[in-house]
Design a protein around this nucleic acid. Structure first.
Lengths: 337, 337
DNA sequence: GAAAGGAGTCGAAGCGCTTCGACAGCCTAT
DNA sequence: ATAGGCTGTCGAAGCGCTTCGACTCCTTTC
């Protein structure tokens, strides 16, 4: 293993000079710099991460806590994780992958040991038990998701309330008066992860404003559960012509079931989904949808964190404005031009 | 920040004693141990990761390199990643998340800097450019996937050749004589990631042995691409009654298309999938499938790695035996009991 | 009853890096 | 000419931990 000292000797300078060449924290003459850089290359030197962390009390690692559950919106999670890792690297950070399993203990362990300089938390619940710890420590953190009380925290999330409103508006403009919402699994609502509730509030508020009828039903996803949900919806509101789906696992089953029942999309019923674009474009009907901007969320989170680590940036809540893309699954309500 | 020295002082022992209590590398009297443990608890001490890594030249971190592409079998990747993280924790390791983006440089960086003690690589290509580096370093590593030359490497993977054979056998036993394989996207074959080719070889070999006709077509996935692929298959082999699908994104479209064409599953055609159980059970027809044991692969990989780090264990290739679960998508070929 | 060995503890020497203060040399402003 | 201020470099002091050898008691063994 090559050390700083060996590089210094090879280049004929002192160890501290090599260190300053590496960090750029003091000015170094061009000739010296080149000589050192050449030695580094020739010897294949890589600074020892542990020594660096010890001396500088900076690990250059960002911890990312992902939910343990692999039962919902997995592709979104994965996309966020990869965006986080990629963005972090461009700022010189590596990413430590933590699962939700350890809960608050993981936060304690990581902040306590100096393993990471900062944390990103995904899948935050409204009243998450990790939040007090984050507020207490001076280690920067960013949440992806929105808890009930955001004071002293930085959060990044899609504006799900606006998302709900946007979906309703779109359907209203097309003349739909009876709208059904196929929501996430009941467990998601029980867990109070926030985003599902916020979407619902947005949907309801705008529906009320526009005088539409809105029926919401949670749905486990998968073919059988969706079939049951759909049957109940048409049972209760036979005149339903607009659907909003916020559950990836219910999208394709819903389309299959509608087809089977002889209801054409978008001629008889319109469907608007809240899902990643990939799902929307790969479905059997290209779906009008509000995209979940996974990459953007991951990137934002890292950039806020890096800003904080650099002493810039402050606590704030960033809600990303939703964008609705019209595709082939929505059209005028029956009997409308 | 609490340090070892402070704990030592608080407990009235020397620093080295505290260290030995923590590591268990020398015997400590019960009374001393308890006193030290109490001080640790009272002061809320967490060993500094950097200092530990520097002194012991062990970071207790395992690097996990995941593919950057989020275009295929994402849930499998995610499940593996989470299994890796969870298993690693039970052995006292944390997981560093690297994306394939950096390629060989990431390997150099991580091994050179001592950031991680070992590596797990996913999405290994047949002739992966990272392999020479892994062979050259003395840092343990495990591949999830199988390259062309496995000498000096440890690999964990599903036995995809046996998987292919198993699928064909199942369909043959039910009397199907004309079998079509809907494969992964063409890009997957071009990239030579191995698993797709190995499945195909297994399928072909057994089909030959059993005297079946086999038609293989790569498929991009998604509704439109699957429709084209399916049309071509029936065009070329109108008598096809058995399908093997190895592309999650083609599963649901295939079922929808068959239904639409009035071909009942499993009465007219049988479908066998190679996919995670979750996909198989959530599909519109519960699918007969060979599961991709993502969790098991992740767990295996970590356990091999830990064994190597402990000086146990050696290079070897572990192929997990496939298991076929019969569900509702396969049955006797038409005209057969 | 002396030698041999084990159990339990301590002190000190690093691990490889960052960073602070010091200082030599040079340029500019008086 | 001389004080003052840059620029570029060096030496040394740690950062918090692990680990090795040494030492002190005790227990065992013939």
């Amino acid at each position: 293993m090559v050390t700083l000292a060996e590089v210094a000797q090879h280049a004929g300078v002192s160890a501290s000079t090599v260190s300053y060449v590496l960090s750029g924290k003091r000015s170094i003459s061009a000739t010296t710099r080149q000589r050192v850089e050449r030695s580094i290359r020739e010897l294949g030197y890589h600074p020892n991460a542990g020594a660096r962390a010890l001396a500088s009390s900076r690990s250059n690692i960002i911890a990312l806590m992902v939910p343990l559950r692999t039962d919902m919106y997995v592709p979104v999670m994965m996309e966020i994780a990869i965006a986080v890792a990629t963005t972090a690297r461009t700022h010189g950070y590596d990413v430590l992958l933590l699962t939700g399993e350890e809960g608050p203990d993981a936060v304690r362990r990581v902040t306590g040991s100096g393993l990471a300089d900062a944390m990103i938390l995904m899948d935050v619940e409204l009243d998450d038990e990790r939040l007090p710890l984050l507020r207490a420590t001076d280690q920067p953190s960013v949440l992806i998701g929105l808890p009930a009380d955001t004071s002293g925290l930085t959060c990044v999330d899609l504006d799900f309330a606006a998302t709900g409103a946007l979906c309703v508006e779109h359907l209203a403009k097309l003349g739909h008066r009876d709208i059904a919402v196929i929501g996430e699994a009941p467990a998601v609502y029980e867990r109070h992860t926030g985003f599902a509730e916020r979407t619902l509030e947005g949907l309801r508020a705008r529906a009320r404003e526009l005088g539409l009828r809105l029926l919401h039903r949670p749905c486990e996803g998968g073919y059988d559960a969706t079939a049951v949900t759909l049957a109940r919806i048409f049972d209760e509101r036979p005149g339903t012509t607009g659907f909003v789906v916020q559950n990836e696992a219910a999208v394709e089953p819903l389309l299959a079931l509608l087809r089977q029942q002889g209801r054409a999309v978008p001629e008889d019923v319109s469907v608007v989904a809240v899902c990643p674009d990939q799902v929307a474009t790969q479905a059997s009907v290209r779906l009008t949808s509000v995209a979940i901007p996974a990459q953007e969320m991951g990137r934002h989170a890292v950039e806020h964190l890096v800003a904080k680590l650099d002493g810039r940036g402050s606590d704030e809540v960033v809600l990303i404005a939703p964008e609705l893309t019209v595709r082939a699954s929505s059209g005028p309500a029956p009997g409308r031009p």
